[in-house]
Protein backbone atom coordinates (compact mmCIF):
# COMPACT_ATOMS: atom_id res chain seq x y z
CA UNK A 1 0.00 0.00 0.00
CA UNK A 2 2.79 2.42 1.00
CA UNK A 3 4.61 1.74 -2.28
CA UNK A 4 1.52 2.53 -4.35
CA UNK A 5 0.86 5.68 -2.32
CA UNK A 6 4.49 6.74 -2.85
CA UNK A 7 4.19 5.99 -6.57
CA UNK A 8 1.01 8.05 -6.83
CA UNK A 9 2.75 10.92 -5.04
CA UNK A 10 5.82 10.57 -7.27
CA UNK A 11 3.48 10.80 -10.27
CA UNK A 12 2.01 13.95 -8.75
CA UNK A 13 5.56 15.26 -8.29
CA UNK A 14 6.31 14.66 -11.98
CA UNK A 15 3.10 16.49 -12.90
CA UNK A 16 3.95 19.46 -10.67
CA UNK A 17 7.62 19.75 -11.76
CA UNK A 18 7.30 18.36 -15.28
CA UNK A 19 9.79 20.70 -16.96
CA UNK A 20 12.43 20.14 -14.29
CA UNK A 21 12.15 16.38 -14.61
CA UNK A 22 12.20 16.45 -18.43
CA UNK A 23 15.39 18.52 -18.44
CA UNK A 24 16.97 16.07 -16.00
CA UNK A 25 15.93 13.07 -18.12
CA UNK A 26 17.31 14.71 -21.29
CA UNK A 27 20.67 15.33 -19.60
CA UNK A 28 20.76 11.76 -18.31
CA UNK A 29 19.92 10.37 -21.77
CA UNK A 30 23.07 12.03 -23.15
CA UNK A 31 25.18 10.54 -20.37
CA UNK A 32 23.73 7.05 -20.86
CA UNK A 33 24.05 7.38 -24.64
CA UNK A 34 27.81 7.99 -24.29
CA UNK A 35 28.13 4.99 -22.00
CA UNK A 36 26.02 2.79 -24.29
CA UNK A 37 28.03 3.78 -27.38
CA UNK A 38 31.29 3.02 -25.61
CA UNK A 39 29.97 -0.34 -24.40
CA UNK A 40 28.84 -1.11 -27.94
CA UNK A 41 32.30 -0.35 -29.34
CA UNK A 42 34.03 -2.52 -26.75
CA UNK A 43 31.55 -5.34 -27.26
CA UNK A 44 32.30 -5.42 -31.01
CA UNK A 45 36.03 -4.93 -30.54
CA UNK A 46 36.00 -7.90 -28.15
CA UNK A 47 34.28 -9.98 -30.79
CA UNK A 48 36.94 -9.09 -33.36
CA UNK A 49 39.74 -9.92 -30.91
CA UNK A 50 38.03 -13.16 -29.96
CA UNK A 51 37.43 -14.16 -33.58
CA UNK A 52 41.00 -13.42 -34.62
CA UNK A 53 42.58 -15.06 -31.62
CA UNK A 54 40.61 -18.24 -32.33
CA UNK A 55 41.30 -18.09 -36.08
CA UNK A 56 45.04 -19.01 -35.57
CA UNK A 57 46.31 -18.21 -39.00
CA UNK A 58 49.65 -17.81 -40.68
CA UNK A 59 50.41 -16.49 -44.16
CA UNK A 60 53.62 -17.58 -45.89
CA UNK A 61 54.32 -15.10 -48.70
CA UNK A 62 56.25 -16.68 -51.55
CA UNK A 63 59.01 -14.90 -53.41
CA UNK A 64 58.30 -13.90 -57.01
CA UNK A 65 60.91 -16.33 -58.36
CA UNK A 66 59.82 -19.31 -56.23
CA UNK A 67 59.93 -22.59 -58.15
CA UNK A 68 56.85 -24.78 -58.30
CA UNK A 69 58.77 -27.76 -56.87
CA UNK A 70 60.06 -25.72 -53.90
CA UNK A 71 56.55 -24.47 -53.15
CA UNK A 72 55.13 -28.01 -53.29
CA UNK A 73 57.88 -29.27 -50.99
CA UNK A 74 57.24 -26.46 -48.52
CA UNK A 75 53.50 -27.23 -48.59
CA UNK A 76 54.26 -30.90 -47.83
CA UNK A 77 56.52 -29.95 -44.92
CA UNK A 78 53.87 -27.67 -43.45
CA UNK A 79 51.08 -30.24 -43.83
CA UNK A 80 53.19 -32.81 -42.00
CA UNK A 81 53.35 -30.64 -38.87
CA UNK A 82 51.03 -31.65 -36.01
CA UNK A 83 50.04 -28.00 -35.32
CA UNK A 84 48.86 -27.36 -38.88
CA UNK A 85 45.25 -28.05 -39.80
CA UNK A 86 45.24 -27.04 -43.46
CA UNK A 87 47.49 -25.44 -46.06
CA UNK A 88 46.04 -23.67 -49.11
CA UNK A 89 48.11 -22.35 -51.99
CA UNK A 90 46.90 -18.95 -53.22
CA UNK A 91 48.42 -17.79 -56.50
CA UNK A 92 48.96 -14.09 -57.27
CA UNK A 93 45.95 -14.14 -59.61
CA UNK A 94 43.76 -15.79 -56.93
CA UNK A 95 44.88 -13.23 -54.36
CA UNK A 96 43.95 -10.36 -56.66
CA UNK A 97 40.55 -11.92 -57.45
CA UNK A 98 39.75 -12.57 -53.76
CA UNK A 99 40.63 -9.01 -52.87
CA UNK A 100 38.34 -7.59 -55.53
CA UNK A 101 35.51 -9.91 -54.42
CA UNK A 102 35.80 -9.31 -50.70
CA UNK A 103 36.44 -5.60 -50.64
CA UNK A 104 33.70 -3.15 -51.43
CA UNK A 105 35.89 -1.21 -53.83
CA UNK A 106 34.53 -1.24 -57.35
CA UNK A 107 37.70 -1.34 -59.45
CA UNK A 108 38.72 -3.31 -62.45
CA UNK A 109 41.05 -6.17 -61.45
CA UNK A 110 43.16 -5.50 -64.52
CA UNK A 111 44.03 -2.01 -63.27
CA UNK A 112 45.62 -3.35 -60.04
CA UNK A 113 49.37 -4.12 -60.18
CA UNK A 114 50.25 -7.82 -59.98
CA UNK A 115 53.20 -7.21 -57.62
CA UNK A 116 50.77 -5.97 -54.96
CA UNK A 117 49.37 -9.51 -54.67
CA UNK A 118 52.15 -12.01 -54.02
CA UNK A 119 51.39 -15.74 -54.07
CA UNK A 120 51.12 -17.29 -50.62
CA UNK A 121 50.46 -20.38 -48.60
CA UNK A 122 47.56 -19.75 -46.22
CA UNK A 123 48.19 -21.94 -43.19
CA UNK A 124 45.33 -22.68 -40.78
CA UNK A 125 46.62 -23.73 -37.38
CA UNK A 126 45.04 -25.92 -34.77
CA UNK A 127 43.71 -24.03 -31.76
CA UNK A 128 45.97 -25.93 -29.34
CA UNK A 129 49.11 -24.65 -31.16
CA UNK A 130 51.43 -23.09 -28.58
CA UNK A 131 52.99 -19.72 -29.37
CA UNK A 132 56.55 -20.89 -28.43
CA UNK A 133 56.34 -23.76 -30.86
CA UNK A 134 54.83 -21.50 -33.50
CA UNK A 135 57.78 -19.14 -33.26
CA UNK A 136 60.17 -22.06 -33.92
CA UNK A 137 58.10 -23.14 -36.92
CA UNK A 138 58.08 -19.59 -38.30
CA UNK A 139 61.89 -19.38 -38.00
CA UNK A 140 62.28 -22.68 -39.85
CA UNK A 141 59.83 -21.69 -42.60
CA UNK A 142 61.67 -18.38 -43.12
CA UNK A 143 64.76 -20.45 -43.94
CA UNK A 144 63.20 -21.84 -47.11
CA UNK A 145 64.41 -20.15 -50.29
CA UNK A 146 60.94 -19.83 -51.77
CA UNK A 147 59.72 -17.79 -48.81
CA UNK A 148 59.70 -14.00 -48.95
CA UNK A 149 58.01 -13.32 -45.56
CA UNK A 150 55.93 -15.06 -42.91
CA UNK A 151 53.02 -13.16 -41.35
CA UNK A 152 51.70 -14.56 -38.06
CA UNK A 153 49.49 -11.52 -37.22
CA UNK A 154 51.00 -11.65 -33.70
CA UNK A 155 51.78 -7.97 -33.80
CA UNK A 156 48.27 -7.19 -35.00
CA UNK A 157 46.78 -9.28 -32.16
CA UNK A 158 49.01 -7.44 -29.70
CA UNK A 159 47.85 -4.08 -31.07
CA UNK A 160 44.22 -5.17 -31.01
CA UNK A 161 44.63 -6.49 -27.45
CA UNK A 162 46.15 -3.20 -26.41
CA UNK A 163 43.34 -1.28 -28.12
CA UNK A 164 40.76 -3.47 -26.42
CA UNK A 165 42.39 -3.02 -23.05
CA UNK A 166 42.45 0.78 -23.58
CA UNK A 167 38.81 0.65 -24.69
CA UNK A 168 37.80 -1.30 -21.58
CA UNK A 169 39.63 1.17 -19.33
CA UNK A 170 37.93 4.05 -21.15
CA UNK A 171 34.53 2.41 -20.67
CA UNK A 172 35.24 1.86 -16.97
CA UNK A 173 36.18 5.53 -16.64
CA UNK A 174 33.15 6.58 -18.65
CA UNK A 175 30.91 4.41 -16.47
CA UNK A 176 32.33 6.11 -13.37
CA UNK A 177 31.79 9.50 -15.03
CA UNK A 178 28.22 8.60 -15.94
CA UNK A 179 27.62 7.47 -12.36
CA UNK A 180 28.87 10.83 -11.10
CA UNK A 181 26.69 12.58 -13.70
CA UNK A 182 23.62 10.59 -12.63
CA UNK A 183 24.27 11.32 -8.95
CA UNK A 184 24.83 15.02 -9.66
CA UNK A 185 21.90 15.50 -12.04
CA UNK A 186 19.44 13.51 -9.93
CA UNK A 187 20.78 15.08 -6.75
CA UNK A 188 20.30 18.61 -8.08
CA UNK A 189 16.89 17.81 -9.57
CA UNK A 190 15.68 16.42 -6.26
CA UNK A 191 17.14 19.40 -4.42
CA UNK A 192 15.14 21.74 -6.65
CA UNK A 193 12.05 19.55 -6.31
CA UNK A 194 12.40 19.68 -2.51
CA UNK A 195 12.71 23.48 -2.66
CA UNK A 196 9.63 23.70 -4.91
CA UNK A 197 7.62 21.45 -2.65
CA UNK A 198 8.48 22.91 0.76
CA UNK A 199 4.82 23.68 1.45
CA UNK A 200 3.84 20.12 0.56
CA UNK A 201 6.49 18.68 2.89
CA UNK A 202 5.34 20.97 5.70
CA UNK A 203 1.74 19.87 5.21
CA UNK A 204 2.76 16.21 5.23
CA UNK A 205 4.69 16.61 8.47
CA UNK A 206 1.81 18.45 10.11
CA UNK A 207 -0.54 15.64 9.10
CA UNK A 208 1.69 13.04 10.76
CA UNK A 209 3.76 11.73 7.86
CA UNK A 210 6.83 9.76 8.86
CA UNK A 211 10.23 10.67 7.40
CA UNK A 212 10.15 7.65 5.11
CA UNK A 213 6.69 8.65 3.85
CA UNK A 214 8.00 12.12 2.96
CA UNK A 215 11.18 10.82 1.35
CA UNK A 216 9.88 7.81 -0.57
CA UNK A 217 8.31 9.64 -3.56
CA UNK A 218 11.49 11.68 -4.09
CA UNK A 219 13.58 8.48 -4.15
CA UNK A 220 11.10 6.95 -6.59
CA UNK A 221 11.29 10.06 -8.78
CA UNK A 222 15.10 9.73 -8.97
CA UNK A 223 14.81 6.05 -9.75
CA UNK A 224 12.18 6.58 -12.45
CA UNK A 225 14.14 9.44 -14.05
CA UNK A 226 17.34 7.41 -14.33
CA UNK A 227 15.52 4.28 -15.53
CA UNK A 228 13.59 6.23 -18.16
CA UNK A 229 16.80 7.94 -19.31
CA UNK A 230 18.68 4.62 -19.58
CA UNK A 231 15.82 3.02 -21.58
CA UNK A 232 15.54 6.06 -23.85
CA UNK A 233 19.30 6.05 -24.43
CA UNK A 234 19.17 2.34 -25.34
CA UNK A 235 16.31 2.99 -27.78
CA UNK A 236 18.24 5.80 -29.43
CA UNK A 237 21.30 3.55 -29.60
CA UNK A 238 19.25 0.77 -31.24
CA UNK A 239 18.00 3.25 -33.86
CA UNK A 240 21.53 4.59 -34.47
CA UNK A 241 22.94 1.05 -34.60
CA UNK A 242 20.49 -0.21 -37.20
CA UNK A 243 20.87 2.99 -39.24
CA UNK A 244 24.67 2.65 -39.40
CA UNK A 245 24.86 -1.13 -39.47
CA UNK A 246 24.81 -1.52 -43.27
CA UNK A 247 27.70 0.86 -43.85
CA UNK A 248 29.77 -0.60 -40.99
CA UNK A 249 29.24 -4.18 -42.19
CA UNK A 250 30.34 -3.21 -45.71
CA UNK A 251 33.61 -1.70 -44.58
CA UNK A 252 34.84 -2.79 -41.14
CA UNK A 253 32.88 -6.03 -41.29
CA UNK A 254 34.65 -7.05 -44.50
CA UNK A 255 38.07 -6.15 -43.20
CA UNK A 256 37.67 -7.86 -39.84
CA UNK A 257 35.49 -10.74 -41.00
CA UNK A 258 33.21 -10.22 -38.01
CA UNK A 259 29.54 -9.21 -38.08
CA UNK A 260 28.66 -6.36 -35.74
CA UNK A 261 26.25 -7.02 -32.88
CA UNK A 262 24.19 -4.82 -30.54
CA UNK A 263 24.73 -4.83 -26.78
CA UNK A 264 23.89 -8.19 -25.21
CA UNK A 265 20.61 -8.28 -23.21
CA UNK A 266 22.67 -8.74 -20.04
CA UNK A 267 24.69 -5.57 -20.60
CA UNK A 268 21.58 -3.60 -21.61
CA UNK A 269 19.76 -4.81 -18.49
CA UNK A 270 22.77 -4.00 -16.32
CA UNK A 271 22.82 -0.49 -17.78
CA UNK A 272 19.13 0.04 -16.95
CA UNK A 273 19.32 -1.52 -13.48
CA UNK A 274 22.61 0.23 -12.70
CA UNK A 275 21.06 3.51 -13.83
CA UNK A 276 17.99 2.92 -11.67
CA UNK A 277 20.15 2.16 -8.64
CA UNK A 278 22.30 5.24 -9.26
CA UNK A 279 19.15 7.37 -9.63
CA UNK A 280 17.70 6.15 -6.36
CA UNK A 281 21.06 6.59 -4.62
CA UNK A 282 21.49 10.13 -5.99
CA UNK A 283 18.05 11.05 -4.78
CA UNK A 284 18.56 9.51 -1.33
CA UNK A 285 21.92 11.27 -0.92
CA UNK A 286 20.39 14.58 -1.94
CA UNK A 287 17.50 14.13 0.50
CA UNK A 288 19.91 13.38 3.34
CA UNK A 289 21.63 16.64 2.62
CA UNK A 290 18.79 18.98 1.71
CA UNK A 291 15.64 17.62 3.30
CA UNK A 292 15.84 18.44 6.97
CA UNK A 293 12.62 17.01 8.37
Amino acid sequence: MEFWTALARAKRGFRDDLRLHLVAIASLVIAFLCLGAALLSVENLSRVADRWSRAQHMTVYLSADAKKGDVAQLQLVLESLAEVAQVRHVSAADAKREFVEQSDISVEASTLPDEAFPASLEVSLKSEAKSERMRTIVERVRGFGAVEEVETYEELFAQLGSLLSTGKSAVAMLAALVLICVLAIIGNTIRLAVANRRSEIEVLKLCGATDSFVRSPFVLEGLIQATAAAILALLLLVIAYFSARGAVEATLGTITGVHTVFLSPGIALAMVLGGAAAGAAGSALSLRRYLAI
Binding site: R12, S199, C207, A209
Partner: peptide, 21 residues
Protein backbone atom coordinates in the same frame (compact mmCIF):
# COMPACT_ATOMS: atom_id res chain seq x y z
CA UNK B 1 -4.08 27.77 5.83
CA UNK B 2 -0.97 25.68 5.09
CA UNK B 3 -2.47 24.02 2.05
CA UNK B 4 -0.72 23.09 -1.20
CA UNK B 5 -2.02 25.64 -3.73
CA UNK B 6 -1.25 23.63 -6.89
CA UNK B 7 -3.07 20.57 -5.58
CA UNK B 8 -6.79 20.07 -6.00
CA UNK B 9 -9.20 20.32 -3.08
CA UNK B 10 -9.50 16.54 -3.11
CA UNK B 11 -5.72 16.03 -2.99
CA UNK B 12 -5.32 18.51 -0.13
CA UNK B 13 -7.92 16.74 1.98
CA UNK B 14 -7.02 13.19 0.95
CA UNK B 15 -3.37 13.58 1.93
CA UNK B 16 -4.20 13.14 5.63
CA UNK B 17 -5.81 9.76 4.86
CA UNK B 18 -3.04 8.69 2.46
CA UNK B 19 -0.57 9.13 5.32
CA UNK B 20 -2.63 6.63 7.33
CA UNK B 21 -2.50 4.15 4.44
Amino acid sequence: FKVVPHWTIFENVAVALEILG
